[in-house]
Design a protein around this nucleic acid. Structure first.
Lengths: 185, 185
DNA sequence: AACAGATGTCTCAAATGTGAGACATCTGTT
DNA sequence: AACAGATGTCTCACATTTGAGACATCTGTT
């Protein structure tokens, strides 16, 4: 199917780009099990492919994140769900952030990608503020640090697993322990 | 001075490569404030430059890490010193690990770099085992997870700061809180 | 079996990145 | 001021990457 290949290319690209932003497109094609020629039939050039990757990770993160944000009224349960949301995005979550923290990246309110990105992380900010105001987590930690810390947790989890595979229960359990304790729960 | 330039190139290269492994060498020259021509006077080609980067991060991490490992007999104090050692290496620490976790990287006992790398991390393993056997940290967490977790912490710290600058005391403080609590201290 | 759509193969031109020679310039030392 | 060492500029040949045309092949459907 046409969409299968397209999807496979994007997934491979996320994997490869996450490791090497300027990797030759051939490498992505190899990962996807297709020819570079076929890749070019789906994506005119590197820029277009990168754009699609960005949309894909954006959408995935936004979707799972929002779902989790609206999943519960209990603050702690909500946090746990948002934690699992981020974890389930895994490499997509880290890649999304990487794209927006590149040295040449100009973060701008005019770019749709950037506002989408900001919105995704605003949910976290909002909720962390609630948790802090209710003293459910440590109040000396800055919101920025907690967000960076969580990205670190996701990144650690992804790196300690086979790439492309979903995270093992064991890792998720450890990650939750370290994260929840690490923010003073 | 000749060594200054050489050093500046390597530092720039670590910064740039850490973000984009296949970045054009011109980008590194720009960062270092020199011409690509000059870069080539110091390093024959990309391979040689990368090799020097690897040596540089290897040495920096090994040195500070070993120093910290031998700094104290008190297990908790020793851990704290090793924590600070890793943090002070910052981007070098994360880059070192990145190089050895690349998908095409073949980890081998025959490579000097790999055995050096392993040795650096063996210190951590050794000490974490001691801490666990004395129940000073949570014993349900695997050594692998704690090491990955620490990398995540360093990575988070680096990302939440201006690139190239040393970490702020505030971040180090938060990082230590999150790390120590996150391993069950 | 005939067909359409997707993909692979082969090929090529254009763009980009790389390594280095030749020479000018700049900087600090004597 | 003369000099040496380091670096910049300009230039070039070469390698790699990229994007796409032409056509063969393969696969699932009818």
């Amino acid at each position: 199917m046409i969409t299968d290949t397209r999807h496979a290319i994007i997934e491979s690209a996320i994997l490869v780009f996450n490791e090497d932003l300027s990797a030759p497109l051939e490498k992505i094609a190899d990962y996807a099990g297709i020819t570079r020629r076929t890749l070019h039939r789906y994506f005119k050039d590197r820029k277009e492919l990168m754009e699609s990757c960005e949309c894909a990770v954006q959408r995935a993160c936004y979707k799972t994140n929002t779902l989790a944000y609206n999943s519960s009224d209990d603050p702690v349960e909500k946090l746990e769900n948002m934690f699992h949301a981020g974890m389930s995005c895994g490499i997509k979550y880290t890649f999304l952030h990487k794209l927006h923290s590149l040295h040449d990246h100009q973060h701008s309110q005019n770019s749709q990608h950037c506002t989408d990105y900001d919105m995704t992380f605003t949910l976290w900010r909002e909720h962390l503020l609630v948790l802090q105001s209710r003293k459910l987590i440590h109040t000396d930690l800055s919101i920025e640090w907690i967000q960076a810390f969580f990205r670190g947790i996701v990144s650690a989890s992804v790196q300690s697993q086979i790439p492309g595979q979903p995270l093992s229960d064991q890792v998720i359990k450890s990650a939750w322990f370290s994260f929840s304790k690490g923010i003073g729960m």
